[in-house]
Amino acid sequence: TGIVNVSSSLNVRSSASTSSKVIGSLSGNTKVTIVGEEGAFYKIEYKGSHGYVAKEYI
């Protein structure tokens, strides 16, 4: 489990790349469930599926 550490919002992406499609966003202080790691990204549970967020903001 981690907490989103941004002042505005954090993009949730379809894969572990900054060039991948943005599938949603999370507000600061949102609790997320981390299910894996891939490079500079965490794989998280997101809306019944999975998404990826940059580690530096969790």
Rank of each mutant, 00 (worst) to 15 (best):
Y57M: 09
N11Q: 14
K47L: 13
G24M: 05
S27K: 15
V6A: 11
A16L: 04
V53H: 00
I44E: 00
F41W: 12
I58E: 02
I58Y: 03
S8K: 13
F41A: 02
G2K: 06
E37F: 07
V6E: 06
V6T: 14
S8H: 15
S17V: 06
Y42K: 01
I44G: 00
K21Y: 09
K21P: 15
A54P: 14
S8E: 12
V35D: 02
G39N: 08
G39M: 05
G48Y: 06
S49T: 11
T18Q: 12
S25H: 14
V35K: 05
T30G: 06
E38Q: 09
I3L: 09
S27E: 14
V12H: 01
G39V: 03
N29P: 07
G28C: 11
V6Y: 05
T18L: 15
Y57D: 08
E38Y: 09
I58W: 04
S25N: 11
V4G: 05
K47F: 11
Y42W: 10
N5W: 06
S8W: 14
V22F: 07
K55F: 03
S9V: 11
K55N: 02
E38W: 08
I34R: 01
S15I: 06
G39L: 06
S7L: 10
L26G: 00
N29F: 15
S25Q: 15
Y52E: 00
G39A: 07
V22M: 06
V32F: 05
S17M: 07
S15Q: 13
N11F: 13
S15F: 09
G51V: 03
L10R: 04
T18H: 15
V6I: 14
G2R: 06
R13A: 04
G36K: 07
V22Y: 06
V4H: 05
R13C: 08
S20W: 05
Y52N: 00
Y42P: 00
S49H: 10
E45D: 07
N11E: 15
Y46I: 04
V4D: 03
V12D: 01
F41R: 01
I58Q: 02
V35Q: 06
S19L: 12
I23P: 00
Y46P: 00
A54F: 11
V22H: 04
G28F: 14
R13Y: 15
G2Y: 05
S9H: 14
H50N: 07
G51F: 03
V53R: 00
S15T: 11
T1P: 09
G36W: 04
H50D: 05
G36A: 08
N5H: 10
G39Q: 05
V53F: 01
F41V: 02
S19C: 12
G24T: 02
N11Y: 14
Y52V: 01
E56L: 11
K21G: 08
S7Q: 13
K31S: 11
V53K: 00
T1W: 12
S7M: 10
S14Q: 14
G36S: 08
V22K: 06
E56R: 13
N5E: 07
S15D: 10
I58K: 02
R13T: 10
H50G: 04
K31Y: 14
S8V: 13
K21M: 13
K31F: 13
Y46G: 00
G2E: 04
T1M: 14
I34Q: 01
R13N: 09
S7W: 07
S14I: 14
S15R: 12
S25M: 15
N29C: 13
S14T: 08
K55L: 03
G51I: 01
G51H: 02
Y42C: 03
G28V: 11
